[in-house]
Amino acid sequence: MKSKLAAAPYLIWMAVFTIVPLGLVFYYGLTDQDGNFSIDNLSRMGMYTNIFFRSIWLAVIATVVCLIIAYPLAFILSRMDTHKQGTMLLLVMLPMWMNFLLRTYAWMTLLETNGVINKILGFVGLGPFEMINTQGAIVLGMVYNYVPFMILPLYSVMTKIDNSVIEAAQDLGSNSRQVLMKVIIPLSKPGIMTGITMVFVPSVSTFIISRMLGGGSNMLIGDLIEQQILGTSYNLNLGASISIVLMIFIFMIMAVMNQFDDEEMEGMII
């Protein structure tokens, strides 16, 4: 009984700020501007297929790049001396303490056609390259902002992999690649899953990164939704409809992901 009482604040919070808004999103998404039930907005989704695909595609690339960068780093981190691990983790987290907008603005000035990077390249006779307002810049922004969310869950899972388990694999005849494929990756799977979720979801729904680094021609779902709610083409009902579709997409992708993660993963060290 006591534990139920302790959960009450969160349950109330969840009811007021999660379930009710979610209901409102569905209400607006499934009605027209006069408040009558309608799926017109949902059926208009076909118009935005490009934007949906672009958003998902860029988010997938950003997630894969994050995984490739974060995986070896997290492993090396987890094998370091404990006191060095603290310092390194601090370095990973440090950028996150700075304002998100500020970090992304910094990339704008770096990537601009007459920005810092092109100027430096100019000195050695290269460029200028067109870096800002490209899809590459958007992916860069996503990776830069969200890579800590990949590193941290991977790291926390990997610290639980006992060194002797790795030695046992070597002892039984595994070379480095086999140790990685047969022991380290299977044992770090929960971290991989969490990391992918934590990078993919914010990437697929971002609107700041795409607007600041992607220019006008690389609109993502986030931008589209924002336009309906705050922007020029004010249409709450359409915005809500797009949100619903995006939510369904994310839900489906996560469901597929979880298929890989259905085995029991209790107790990392025996």
Binding site: D162, S164, V165, E167, A168, A169, Q170, D171, L172, G173, S174, N175, V183, P186, L187, E263, M265, E266, G267, M268, I269, I270
Partner: peptide, 20 residues
């Protein structure tokens, strides 16, 4: 010679079985 090429096997102190 690295461990995986030695004709020697080990029973580790805390067993080090593969939990997965």
């Amino acid at each position: 010679v690295p461990p995986h090429k030695r004709n020697v096997n080990t029973v580790f102190q805390r067993y080090a079985l593969f939990p997965h």
